[in-house]
């Protein structure tokens, strides 16, 4: 296990270095100049040069790159060109909001998808299975930019149960979480159903039943544990995607997450912030996959972490 952890951590270094270098190159070739966007068009050339110098953009690219990498090694992601604050502080503030939304939407997705997926698998070919399938198709067909406003109109404007938007207390979390959770549920539900259908006819399930174990225990403890492996893969990928920003949902609900931050940073050509955000996103994905690997071993002893 220790060897596995060490190997994964060591692998993290070239991945993050590659991502960082790629993003550094991409931000340099992006059309649009942060100096133009900051100073406007009436600035004099001398003033532009001065700002370029102040921001360190006048130095050769190699020097800028070395400086940036040196900062990273010291744990310094740089300073936002526009906000004049540490990039790490800005990302950290947003991570909190993104984590709330991610956890809540995953909880919603699991609450919807697991019971439905299990029920559909157990009653394969029945009306319930068909209904669950239709629900999955409906869920997958509803884009969040449509479902979000629909939920707002019904539950905020019509019934007045939740705030329309913003991040102000527990109630404001419900609608964005349901919107995102509903989008995530169909694939989880279908995956839970098909995995269970594979597991349920296996010998160890029959043996468990023959031992007199209750059907509920057979299902939830014996069958679901093995059927969970593909779900873990999807959840780990979604965890990365959601933590790094559910941009449309964040925009619809005015939720101050990482997704909106990335978009704003790109729009304003705030290079250090763009680089910091992408590095953060890469780290989130790598960590989520790492956690998924550990979860595999925990759920299935046949998987060896070497």
């Amino acid at each position: 296990m220790r060897k596995f952890l060490l190997r994964r951590i060591l692998l993290l270094i070239p991945v993050l270095w590659g991502v960082t270098t790629l993003v550094f190159i991409v931000t340099q070739v992006l059309p649009g100049d942060p100096v133009d966007l900051m100073l406007g068009e009436t600035a004099r050339p001398a003033q532009r040069e001065q700002l370029r110098k102040t921001l360190g953009l006048d130095r050769p690219l190699g020097v800028q790159y070395a400086d940036y990498m040196g900062g990273l090694l010291r744990g310094d992601l740089g300073t936002s060109l526009h906000q004049k604050r540490a990039v790490s502080d800005i990302i950290f503030e947003r991570t909190y909001a993104s984590a709330e939304l991610t956890l809540a939407s995953m909880a919603v997705a699991l609450l919807i998808s697991l019971p439905l997926g299990i029920a559909a698998a157990r009653r394969q070919g029945t009306a319930l299975d068909l209904g669950a399938g239709l629900l999955a198709v409906a869920g997958a067909s509803m884009p969040v930019f449509w479902l979000g406003p629909l939920l707002i109109i019904v539950f905020s404007i019509g019934l007045g149960w939740f705030p329309v938007s913003g991040r102000e207390g527990v109630l404001s979390l419900i609608l964005p979480a349901v919107t995102l959770g509903a989008a995530l549920s169909p694939i989880l539900m279908r995956m839970a159903r098909s995995s269970l259908l594979e597991v349920l006819p296996q010998d160890y399930i029959s043996t468990a039943r023959a031992k007199g174990i209750t059907e509920r225990r057979v299902l939830w403890l014996h069958a679901l544990k093995n059927a969970c492996l593909p779900l873990i893969t999807i959840l780990s990928l979604q965890l990365g995607a959601l933590l790094s920003g559910a941009i449309i949902t964040e925009t619809v609900f005015a939720w101050p997450g990482v997704g909106r931050l990335v978009i704003q940073a790109i729009a304003s050509r705030d290079y250090p912030l763009v680089q910091g955000c992408v590095l953060f996103i890469a780290a989130v994905y790598v960590t989520a996959n790492f956690l998924a690997d550990i979860a595999y071993a925990w759920l299935d002893p046949r998987v060896r972490l070497t």
Partner: peptide, 15 residues
């Protein structure tokens, strides 16, 4: 999980 979300969200801005 739900309690964690509620706790986290409860720490957010108040109206």
């Amino acid at each position: 999980l739900i309690l964690a979300c509620s706790f986290l969200s409860g720490c957010g801005e108040k109206r």
